[in-house]
Each structure stands twice: as structure tokens, then as C-alpha cells.
Amino acid sequence: MDCRSTKFLVVSFSLWLSCIHAIQTGRFPAILAFGDSILDTGNNNMPKLLTVSKSNFLPYGRNFPYHTPTGRFGNGRVLSDLVAEGLGIKNLVPAFRSSFLKSSELPTGVCFASGGSGLDKFTASIQGVIWVKDQLKDFQSYIQKLSQEVGDAAKVKEIIANAVVLISAGNNDIAITFFATRAKKLRYNIETYTDQLIDWKTAFVQNLYNMGVRKFAVLGTLPLGCLPGARQMSGDLICLPHVNHGAKIYNQKVANLVVKFRQSLPDGKFVYIDMYNSLLDVIKNPSKYGFRTAKPCCCSVMTPIPCLDSGSHVFWDFAHPSEKAYKSVLPNIVSVISNNLA
């Protein structure tokens, strides 16, 4: 074993201890997730939601318990589940719109995120999914149901104020609405469009704050130009630099917004989660993290037949990391949340 391998094992063990520490302390009573498919645990499953952005069929969920496709956009658990487990809250975060949601799950949190959604109403409407702003309506309904379950207004307020709130929004706005559909190109350039996204995100966070949320973990976008769906545009030769450039512009503005919120909303706690660089390192150095390839395992033009071992692939499909890839970046996320929001 060379020095680099030894160093990686030491760092991985250290981060693993951080996860265990968070589990043992159990400082957060609940987790609430808003946004897109990075966090969605099945809200798009509803039959009356007329969208093709669904994943409640095989081979999705192939590595989920009992090989069950749950509507999660991956081979197993997604980031919201893994963060919840890493923080010692619970192993699975139920979708709020699920017909199987148990009222006993409400005090420890639910997921409102919708695969394909975004801050831009156009992004959600072209796919027929739940717009991020409309997820606030679901949150209001959640508070009412939580009040019925708990039966104590002060306890409800305490749960909401101490819950970790994950927000992942912007991936689809940039990758699909701006670069793929070009629907906004006549009105915006990437600078002005990302400014508009930040305005919408500011209003969204402010609304959550007004509804009692106090602990925010705001995720930046993935390296969108390196997703398999983007790379296939170059014949899978390179990441698309202009798309990554747009993602970086947006992420810097999100990071700056988090700093502003710390100043303007001192009763809240805010942390920025860098998804871009952490996942980019996994994509560029797959063997370092125990992967064989950064190509998708299934469900894309490049892989019409699902691979046999999803654990050897960074990506599950054309846009979504595998469960193992999420786990590769998880320890740092859990550490950042635990150290800054507790």
C-alpha cells in the first residue's frame, strides 16, 4: 500500500468517526428535505401527477431493501436518507405525498422534494412535477398534520426549529431550462439567470424561516457538465465546460447568499454544502473511491442494459449518482452539518 492509499484510509476513517459521533449525539430531532431528485424519496409517484419524471419501476431501487423501486432516483437510498442516517435521525426519509406515510413518521421528518423540479416555475411545469414554491404548501400541510400528531404547539415549534432542513434546487434550472431547452436564452444570460434563481431562492428560504425553520443546509449544484447526460453530448470525451461554468457561477452566488443569511437572520443557522467539488473529485478519480468507472450503470443511451454491479459505477443513470457515490461524499456533509447547525 502506497502513502496515498494510506492517507486516504486515514481520512476516510476520520470522516467515518464524524458520522458515528453525529449518530451517538442525536442532536437533531428531524430532517426536512426540499428541492429536486437528489433528495426526492418518492413524491413523484402519485398517479395524478402527470409526469415522466418517475422512478417507481425497476431497475430503480435494485439495491434498496427487498429490491423495491420506491420513486427514489437511484439504485438505493438517496442523499436525504443517508444524511438522516448520518445525523442519527432515521435510516429512511418518507415522501410527504406518499399514500403509505405513517403519522408516526412526522415528528422525525419527511421529504417534500420532487425529481425534475427547480426554483423556476418553468422548470417544474415542463416536466409536470412539484414546483419548489409549491413544496411550501406541502410544508404548511405537514405542520398541521404534525400538530395533530404531537398535540402540543410548543413541541411542534421546537421540532421545526431544530430540524435540519436540506435544500437542493438549481440543478434542473441550469442543466435543463437554461442549457438544454434554451427557453431563457432570449431573456437572460447565465449571469442574469443565476441572479434570478438567487432571488427565488432568497424568497424560498425567507418563507421557510417565517414558518419557523431555523437550521438550513443549502446544497450547491452537482458538476452538471460532468453528468453522463451532458458528457454524451461530447461523445463521452469531456465534461461540458460551459455547463460547469454556469454551475460554478450559481454555486458561488448560493455560497454568498448563505453568508448574507447569517448576517440578516441571526436567529437562524445556515451552512453551504459544496456538492460540486466533492462529487467532481469522485468523477475524476473514481478508483480513489473504489469505483471502476464514472459511466452510468443503467438507464441511459450509453448503457441501455443495466450493469451487474452498481457499486463499481459513480453514476446510476444519466444524471444521478449511485448510492455508493453519495456515501463517498457523505461524511464531509454530515460533519459540516453537525459542526455548524447543532
Rank of each mutant, 00 (worst) to 15 (best):
I126N: 00
D81W: 13
Q196E: 12
S18D: 11
V150S: 01
K324A: 06
P296W: 02
M211T: 00
K48W: 06
S234V: 03
P304I: 07
S37K: 04
Y209L: 11
A247H: 01
I20Q: 09
G225L: 11
S14L: 10
N340R: 14
H245I: 05
L9S: 07
V52M: 11
T70I: 10
G26Y: 12
K137H: 04
L39Q: 01
K248Q: 15
F178L: 06
S234I: 09
L224R: 04
N340Y: 03
L222G: 09
I89P: 10
I337W: 09
H67A: 02
N43D: 12
F73R: 08
E191A: 08
L166P: 03
G118Y: 06
Q144A: 13
I305H: 03
E149Q: 15
T25N: 13
S12K: 12
F100T: 06
V52L: 13
V314R: 14
S147M: 11
P29A: 14
P304E: 03
V205N: 02
R72S: 10
P321A: 13
R292F: 06
H21G: 09
K295T: 11
I130G: 04
I159C: 02
A255I: 07
V11D: 01
A342K: 02
K269V: 02
P286A: 12
M275S: 15
R62G: 00
S80A: 15
L92E: 01
R97M: 15
V329C: 14
A22P: 07
W16Q: 12
Q232H: 01
R4P: 00
K145L: 07
A175H: 09
C3I: 12
A33D: 02
L119W: 07
L237F: 05
Q140W: 03
S14P: 00
D152R: 07
N172H: 09
N340K: 13
R77Q: 10
D236A: 08
K184W: 07
L58Q: 08
K48H: 15
I249V: 08
D274W: 13
Y142M: 02
F122T: 09
L224Q: 06
Y276Q: 08
L208V: 02
E105W: 14
I20V: 07
N162V: 08
K157T: 14
E85C: 14
C239K: 10
I176T: 14
